[in-house]
Simulated scan of single mutants.
Amino acid sequence: MSTCTALIIPANEAEPVRVETIDTGLETLQTLVGGNIEAVSAEDWHFYLNEEGKILGLAPNRRAGQLVREETGRLSDIYCGDVVVLGETYDGDEADVPERLIETAQQLFGIQQPTA
């Protein structure tokens, strides 16, 4: 198991987007998204969400969609439920979320920084 800095984007827009250091083990990721995980990949980053989010009727995560559209220039799906964004190494391992994504999230939504 390893720990990485993650960007957490709740589907509930009343909850703040936040940056946290998390254990990247399967159990932790499942807890954060509320069920089995599905990965959506981009260039050097990816995010996890509940693989049954649409079936379960979880709320659409508009902020996650907005971040994807801002970073990739396209949006090919509607993401439902909470999202955990991480970086990716060249080997495909988990890594800290890229700083540019944190900066983009700050500009778009404001984010809650971790407390020391």
Rank of each mutant, 00 (worst) to 15 (best):
R18N: 02
G57S: 04
V85P: 03
Q106T: 10
T3I: 13
T89Q: 14
H46P: 09
T24F: 05
E15A: 13
L75K: 04
S76C: 12
A11F: 11
V84M: 06
T89W: 15
A11H: 06
I78K: 01
E99A: 06
E94W: 10
P60Y: 01
N12T: 12
G35D: 03
I102W: 07
L7T: 10
A14K: 10
A42D: 08
T28M: 11
L26P: 15
P60D: 02
R63K: 05
T5M: 14
D93W: 14
C80M: 03
E103Q: 14
N36L: 13
A14N: 12
A6W: 13
A64Y: 01
E13W: 00
I55D: 07
V68L: 04
N36F: 14
A39P: 15
A39T: 15
K54I: 07
P114N: 03
L29R: 11
I111C: 15
E13D: 06
N50P: 11
C4M: 11
Q107H: 08
D91W: 10
D91E: 09
E51W: 08
D44S: 14
G25S: 06
Q30F: 13
E52N: 06
E71F: 02
R100C: 04
L29F: 14
I102P: 15
C4A: 13
L26W: 15
D23E: 10
L49W: 09
G81K: 01
E52P: 05
A95Y: 12
L56F: 08
A14Q: 11
E71R: 07
L108V: 00
T31F: 15
L101Q: 02
G57R: 00
D23Q: 07
N36R: 03
E15T: 10
E88N: 10
G25W: 05
L75R: 04
S41K: 10
L56I: 02
G110I: 02
P10R: 02
G110K: 07
T89E: 13
W45M: 08
V19E: 06
T104K: 13
I55W: 14
I55G: 11
H46S: 06
E70Q: 08
V84E: 02
D77V: 09
G35L: 07
I111E: 02
E15Q: 10
A116R: 04
N12I: 13
V19H: 12
R62S: 11
G57F: 07
K54R: 02
Q66Y: 00
